[in-house]
């Protein structure tokens, strides 16, 4: 199956002030694929997502999205191209209630989910509509953080550790949601530390170490590469 690459990173280097974080990341994500970035704390996974989004300003190399170079664009321009970012800290606005949080992001193009579709996928959000966004439980906040970027029409999602610190039942639920999104044609680049979870949702995995991609494992080869992956991720 050959599919056109939607996102192409070539030799992406990123700095936070003086410290050099990414030392040349190259990867491809095809349309409709779910790809994870695996790696230890501090390996540069989150930085990779932030660099794609333009939130890490000091970056060099090439980030092409849909054939267009974005490395010089500001985050809001990149968001308008159809990339949506769900940060690890979720970024729920505490001064807005759940419904306002959901409707805050601008609709950038057709093809996003309607509010009803979002509620179908996340019924809990309809129930909690009037509550303050940050008064939800961790799992509910994570749902809200994912749900609100589905309305915008962005088809490329960057999810940063969506399962971190959540109960196994909720993790399962998020796994189901990611699979639903995949069926609907969303492309997802996911950061994960939990590769057991990652292996249930992703087509491919990249292993990040010291700001570089050091390995690539396809989804169905995870079990045969289990020892190698554990060596990468073990502390």
């Amino acid at each position: 199956m050959t599919r056109e690459s939607l996102l192409v990173l070539r030799d992406l280097q990123t700095w936070y002030g003086e410290s050099h974080i990414l030392h040349g990341v190259s990867l491809d994500v095809a349309e409709g694929e779910v790809v994870t970035l695996l790696g230890r704390n501090g390996a540069g996974k989150t930085t990779t997502l932030k660099s794609i989004m333009g939130l890490a300003r000091h970056r060099r190399g090439s980030v092409a999205f849909g054939g267009q170079e974005t490395v010089h664009l500001s985050p809001n321009r990149i968001a308008r191209m159809g990339i949506a970012f769900c940060p690890e800290e979720r970024g729920i606005f505490s001064s807005l209630n759940v419904r306002e949080n959901l409707t805050l992001p601008p609709v950038i193009r057709d093809g996003g989910m309607s509010l009803d579709e979002v509620y179908d996928l996340f019924p809990i959000l309809l129930e909690r509509g009037g509550s303050v966004g940050t008064k939800l439980s961790g799992g509910e906040q994570q749902m809200l953080a994912i749900a609100r970027i589905l309305r915008t029409g962005a088809k490329f999602l960057l999810l940063d550790e969506p399962t971190e610190g959540l109960a196994p039942v909720i993790v399962e639920q998020i796994g189901r949601i990611i699979n639903v999104l995949k069926e609907r044609g969303y492309t997802i680049l996911l950061v994960e530390q939990n590769f057991r979870f990652a292996s249930t949702v992703a087509d491919r995995h990249y292993v990040v170490e010291h700001g570089r991609i050091v390995d690539e494992v396809s989804g169905n080869a995870v079990s045969s590469n289990r020892e190698k992956l554990e060596a990468y991720l073990g502390v």
């Binding site: 939130l55 985050p75 809001n76 308008r80 606005f93 807005l96 805050l104 992001p105 970027i149």
Partner: peptide
């Protein structure tokens, strides 16, 4: 309000 709370997040939403 979203800018006040988390400007980076508001930017990355577009």
């Amino acid at each position: 309000k979203s800018v006040r709370e988390n400007e980076a997040r508001a930017t990355s939403l577009g």
